[in-house]
Amino acid sequence: MASERITPVDLPDPRYEYGGDDHVFVDLAEEMSFTANFKAMAITQRVAERDIDGVVENCPGNASYMLRIDPDVVHPDDVIAELKDIEASIDVAEYAWESRVIDVPVLFEDPWTHETLMDFRDRHQDPDATDLEYSAELNGYDDVESFIDAFVGAPHMVTMVGFVPGLPWCFQMVPRERQLEVPKYVEPRTATPSRAVGFGGAFSVVYPVAGAGGYQLYGRTPVEVLDVDQELPAFEDSMVLPNPGDIINYRRIDRDEYDAIRDEVEAGTYEYDMADVTFSPEEFFEAPNEYNAQLLEAVA
């Protein structure tokens, strides 16, 4: 494992596309990779630094990014020209950004997501297995335990936030060969518990609020990713905790710890275990396992 590294992939030429008259959507790659995501991060950070007139929303995506513009101020073609200029000038390898490592405790095989997934077996590829059993087998693991070990065995980077406020899409920080991949439900569920931890495509997610969903359900975290009343100390500046570029460390906990943390969250006193770090794509690519271990020391 010590010799593992992540090889950057060759990306196609970006596709610059109009989202009507007031959005520009840029597709960097059809498939997910850290190379594509880091490029999206680097470009959108440079867009923010340049403070381009008329750009009103600046949204990095997993392997793409999107801007909302005010066409009364700037023509989409002028924005696209500037984006091409930025694209030509950045070198992701030289990039680094301020990030945070966030500890997210998870009770796997919890009673709440278990009840939900059993309610919707008729919408699943494998009605006779649980979502974890199905995912373990599909990814070549002998059992659920070893699949969970892999899931928590390396941190996951927040590569996009959205769908609803605070939902992080997270891509595990391991070489492609070790990345997990599972389909979404055949038919989406009409219900998902809040704080459910799920997986779909190549992404883990935390559902901020109860609602519909199509990701495989693995567990539930006692901590919030969205606090609209901003009562918890970690939400002083924003009602949303995860931001693109943050690093989530899923940590397996038992029911006692779940209940203890949940009590603190509900009392509004819970202090998140998180730390500021500087993230270097180049160092991560060179030696992901060692670099991850170094990052995680911040929350150890």
Binding site: G19, H23, F25, E30, N62, M160
Partner: peptide, 10 residues
Amino acid sequence: VVDLGYPVGS
């Protein structure tokens, strides 16, 4: 598709 941003009106 790999999850991406949706414009308003899309």
